[in-house]
Design a protein around this nucleic acid. Structure first.
Lengths: 211, 211
DNA sequence: CCACAACCTGACCAATCGGTCAAGAAGAAT
DNA sequence: ATTCTTCTTGACCGATTGGTCAGGTTGTGG
């Protein structure tokens, strides 16, 4: 039985190596930016020789591109709860929950995304113009429908989406500042719940989705 | 009359050179990050030889530090309108106006600040722990007073402040993404007013400061 | 007019960067 | 066992980086 239940087949090891490298790259890129990150440091974090990185990813930019794309996928998935909802209170509330969960579990990814966009998105501009634009159009239509149905106040849907993105991602991107203002300690479970509840309270009341 | 009304005295020229370098540095740092920025590029943007930069600022880090500190000063001044106000509607409304104006006029500075914080504030951590912490404490007290006086709903003041920072700075830090979603065009005067009005409407209603 | 300090800059340097490559190690297929 | 592909790695390279420095220019006070 040579082909069954081997702990490490060749393809499995390849995937594991790629994941290991991508995780290390995400961390280093988020802490130093694209220009400040070095392949040597990523290799050290991954526990691999530098030359091995170039076997799996031909260039630094190719590795960075893959990191950003992975984040974008996670980020888009948070929209599922938005669509499945019946009204703004449930839909936007669940969306805030999902995005806060991502900020908590993938802060490094959020930072890489933010840095990429701040630098005018040199490697993912096509994603912004296609996938993100379509995603946004779709949600704008949903919000407009809710407004027309009188289930929330008339608010510009785009600025509402920007507020949702900004507020939730702030807890990842500016986590260090928040931590510093929290006596140097990371937010506890209860504090994360308070943050999420505060955001939901202000925004859902602010748009008249709850009274 | 040698000492009067000379167009370029030595000290004036020094200040002008420093301003020129700082403006170029702010632009380059915001577009490339600390690691991606090069002294040569900053020198080119400023129209000066690279060696001249090192005459005014001994190291790249010293130049970067000055850029970040200048931004921090502008950023703190926006708080003046907060203090002069009588109640939450006026105070927070004017604060949103001021911060949106900064996002519009100093987007590069906002990006440098954001990148610095995302990288765990290696050069301005002392500012976060002292000046920003005191500033925050002071405004938390003001908001708590407004709540106690029944002029707004009970909301965690810190999370409210984070929401204000996140939402307003988003229009600077993620300006490229917003521009892309606006058919590739910069926001017009009217669109900036709409953005500011939307934010004020949602937040001020969300905290019960206006009905 | 002189002397001194402040200012400017082309040329240069050690260090580090992303990336390459040849030579070998490890599995898989036969 | 043998062959072949896939994987691994130390050593290396040209290019670029932040920073230095000697020598020259400019402005200023006496």
């Amino acid at each position: 039985m040579p082909t069954a239940a081997r702990p490490n087949s060749k393809k499995e090891r390849r995937q594991e190596s790629e994941k290991l490298i991508l995780a290390a790259a995400e961390k280093v890129f988020s802490e130093a930016g694209f220009g400040g990150a070095t392949m040597q440091l990523i290799a050290d974090v991954a526990g691999l020789p530098k030359a091995n990185l170039h076997y799996y990813f031909p260039t630094k930019e190719a590795l960075y591109r893959q990191v950003v794309r992975n984040i974008f996928q996670i980020w888009l998935q948070a929209a599922d709860v938005f669509d499945a909802a019946d009204g703004p209170e449930e839909g936007i509330g669940a969306y805030i929950d999902a995005k806060m969960e991502i900020s908590r579990r993938h802060p490094a990814g959020s930072k890489v995304w933010a840095t990429e966009v701040m630098h005018r998105a040199p490697v993912i501009q096509d994603y912004l113009e296609t996938t993100l634009a379509e995603w946004t159009e779709s949600r704008v239509a949903v919000i407009d429908r809710w407004i027309k149905e009188g289930r929330m106040d008339p608010v510009d849907p785009r600025h509402l989406l920007y507020m949702l993105w900004a507020t939730t991602q702030h807890y990842a991107d500016f986590g260090h500042q928040i931590e510093t203002l929290n006596n140097g300690e990371r937010l506890s479970d209860a504090q994360w719940q308070e943050a999420t509840a505060s955001i939901k309270q202000i925004i859902l009341r602010g748009i008249g989705a709850v009274h």
